[in-house]
Design a protein around this nucleic acid. Structure first.
Lengths: 348, 348
DNA sequence: GAAAGGAGTGTGACCGGTCACACGGCAGAC
DNA sequence: GTCTGCCGTGTGACCGGTCACACTCCTTTC
C-alpha cells in the first residue's frame, strides 16, 4: 500500500486546473496563459487581466514538475550536507534557503551520512537528476568534499568549503577565511601574557584548516613554542577528553578551540580539574553560536557569518552558467569577539 | 541574464540519456525499461539484465520531474518550518530527512518567516503545487500553525505540533507529550525541598503548553503556590531579562525553563546577581541539547526525542491516504535527566 | 498604395516519464 | 486440435508545461 502505487485517478486530477483550463476560462490560448505566467511583455494589458482573473477564479497553481520537464531544468537547488544540526551547517543552510526563497526557487536537502562510498554514491545519484536543479555542497568535511569530487561535470554546483577550498577540484568554492581572525585570537591571548596557546582542532578535510594556520602563524611570528595540536571529532565527549589532557598539564594557560561546542566541553574538563576559566586558563572558541554570550563566563570567540556564506553560495550558483559574481553578496569576514573567557594568566 | 531565461539547448539535452536511449541500447521498448525501473515482476530475468547493463553503460538516471508529471504526484516531501537552527526544529527536520531518504523520497525545505498573512500565503502557495509532494508542517509556533490551517484540503500533510495538537484543525498531528516529564521535573524540584517552582515559558501556539500544564498540575497537586509565568521569545536576550527579574526575587529558588537556551540565559542572569546555581537556585531546562551535559553545572533537563518525532511524521505522511500508523515509529517519551543544576535549597 | 515590420496571439511538437491496451507465443484444459 | 489464459513485450496517448514558428492585424515607410 505504498502511496506511489498508482497515479492519481482521473477525478482527482481534473480537480486541479492546468493552463488549458485557465485558457478556456479566459477565452485565450494556453500559450497566452503561459506568456502571462512568464511575464512576457508581448501581452496586451487587458488580455493579461483576463488571464489573471481566470487564474484567480480557478485557484490555478503552476506545476513545477511540468515546468522543469519542459525547461529541462528545475528552478530548484539541492543542498548536500553531512549534518543539519551543527551550527555551521544549519546556518549555511539557512542562508541558502533564504536567498533561494527570495528568487522563487525550491530548496531541497540531502544528508550524506559519511564519506563511505555507498553514501557518497547514493547522494551523487540523487543529486545528478535534472529534477534536483542546481546543487550547493556544504563541504566542510570529508563527506561533503567527496561528494563534490564525484559530482558529474553535467550538474551545476558550487560548494561551501573550509578556507582555501578543496584542492584538486575545479568547482566554484566559497568560504569564510578565518585565518586572520584565528591569528588575531592567538595574538589576543599572547598579548594578555600567555606564554603560548594550545589548539583543539575540529575535523578538517584538508588537515590544515585556516584556524590552525592562523594560530600557528601567530605563534611562530611571535617566536613562541607551537604546542602539539589536539584533534577532536564533532562529539562533545571527544572535546571533553582533550580538555582533560589539557587540564592535566599545568603549563596550559590558553586554549583556542575549533568551535564553541568544543570550547564548552574543554571548559567543563578544566572545571572538573579545579582550573578556573579565565582565572587559570583562558578559552576561546569559533562560531559565536547565539548563547555563548550568556555563558558563565561569556565566551571569547570568533564570529563566523555562515548565513552570509550560504547566501553567497546561492548567488554564485545563479551566476554559474554565465558571468561574474553579483555585488553585495560577500559574507562578513570572521572576527574576534572578546568576552570574559580570556584574561591574563594568574600564575607563572 | 537569469539562468531560467531559456531551456537547455539541444546538444546539452542530448547528452543526458532517457529511457528511450536505454531502450535502444538494450534492444527493447521504452516500456520494458520503465518496467525494469519499477521492478515489475513481468520482465524476464535476462531481459532485465540487458536493460540494467544498458543503464549502467549509458549512466542513465531517471528524471524525477518527468516521473512526477506522469504520476501526477511527486515522490517528495516538503518540510515547512519557521526556523532551521533552533534545536527542536533542526532535529525534527533531521528525523524527517532521514526517514524520507530511506524510502527514496526527495526532501524540500521551506521557511515561513512569520505568521504574517503574506508569509503564510506564499508558503501555502509554494507547497500547494503537486511538485512539492507531501508536506510536513513543523507547527510548534504560530507561523507553522497558521500555514497548517490555510493548507488546501487537496494537499496531503501531517504536522509536528505542541503536545495536544492544534485545536480546530483536522490534520494528522504528531507530538511529544512532555506533560508528564514537566510534572516529574517540577516534583523533582519540590522533593529537593523547594517551596515552589517558577516557570519561564517559551513561545507556544496554544498559550498552554504541555510544559506549563504539567508544571502547574504538579504544583497544584502538591498544594503549593503557583507563581506567575514569565513568557519569553526565542532570543537569549529575552530569557536573560526574565532571569534578571527572577534573580531580583530572593524567594525564587527553583526555575523550570521552557528550553535549554532559556535556562542558559537565566543561569547567566542569576550568576550576575551573585546567585549560585544550584547552591542558591536550581535551574531545569527542556530539550537536552547535546552539550548541556558539559555545562558547569551540567544541566538537569527533559530529553525530547525530536528526531523520532520527525521520523514519526514521515511515517504518518506515508500512511496518510490509507490506513493505520506503522509500528515502531513512535518517538521516545520525554523524560527528566537529572544532572547538577538542581539541588536542595541552601536557605529558607 | 504596396511593401516591410512589429505587436499580439494561436497551433503543433516536444520534454521523459507514466498508464491503458493490444498483441504474439506458449502451456494447459477439454 | 482448438480454445482459453497468462506471460512478456510493444504501441499510442497523456501529464502540464515549454519552445518554434505561423498567422493576423495594424502601423510605418517609401
Amino acid at each position: 500500500m505504498r502511496p506511489s502505487s498508482g497515479r492519481l485517478d482521473r477525478r482527482q486530477r481534473e480537480a486541479v486546473p492546468s493552463i488549458r483550463d485557465v485558457a478556456a476560462t479566459a477565452g485565450v490560448s494556453y500559450q497566452t496563459v503561459s506568456r502571462v505566467l512568464n511575464e512576457s511583455p508581448r501581452v496586451r494589458p487587458d488580455t493579461r487581466r483576463l488571464v489573471l482573473d481566470a487564474i484567480d477564479r480557478l485557484g490555478y497553481r503552476p506545476n513545477r514538475a511540468a515546468r522543469a520537464l519542459g525547461l529541462g531544468r528545475a528552478n530548484a537547488v539541492t543542498v548536500v550536507t553531512s549534518d543539519t544540526m551543527l551550527y555551521g551547517y544549519a546556518s549555511t543552510l539557512r542562508g541558502i534557503e533564504e536567498a533561494a526563497r527570495q528568487t522563487g526557487m525550491a530548496v531541497g536537502v540531502r544528508v550524506v551520512e559519511s564519506d563511505r562510498p555507498a553514501d557518497v554514491r547514493q547522494t551523487v545519484e540523487h543529486v545528478s537528476d535534472q529534477g534536483a536543479g542546481g546543487v550547493v555542497v556544504i563541504a566542510f568535511d570529508a563527506a561533503g568534499a567527496q561528494v563534490l569530487r564525484e559530482l558529474p561535470a553535467g550538474v551545476s554546483a558550487v560548494a561551501a568549503t573550509e578556507a582555501g577550498g578543496i584542492p584538486g577540484c575545479e568547482r566554484t568554492m566559497i568560504f569564510l577565511d578565518e585565518r586572520q581572525a584565528a591569528a588575531d585570537a592567538t595574538r589576543h591571548l599572547l598579548s594578555l601574557g600567555h606564554r603560548t596557546v594550545h589548539h583543539v582542532a575540529i575535523p578538517s578535510e584538508t588537515g590544515r584548516s585556516a584556524r590552525q594556520v592562523g594560530w600557528r602563524d601567530a605563534l611562530e611570528s611571535a617566536g613562541v613554542a607551537v604546542p602539539e595540536i589536539l584533534p577532536v571529532d564533532w562529539s562533545p565527549g571527544s572535546a571533553y577528553t582533550a580538555g582533560r589532557r589539557l587540564a592535566a598539564d599545568r603549563d596550559v594557560t590558553a586554549v583556542l578551540c575549533g568551535n564553541d561546542d568544543a570550547a564548552l566541553a574543554v571548559r567543563r574538563a578544566l572545571y572538573e580539574a579545579g582550573r578556573d576559566v579565565p582565572g587559570d586558563v583562558s578559552v576561546v572558541g569559533f562560531d559565536d553560536v547565539p548563547g555563548v554570550a550568556y555563558w558563565t563566563p561569556a565566551l571569547t570567540t570568533v564570529r563566523m557569518d555562515f548565513v552570509g556564506l550560504g547566501r553567497a553560495c546561492l548567488a554564485a550558483l545563479l551566476d554559474e552558467p554565465g558571468g561574474d559574481p553579483r555585488p553585495g553578496a560577500a559574507p562578513e569576514a570572521p572576527r574576534l569577539v572578546v568576552r570574559e573567557s580570556s584574561a591574563p594568566p594568574s600564575r607563572g
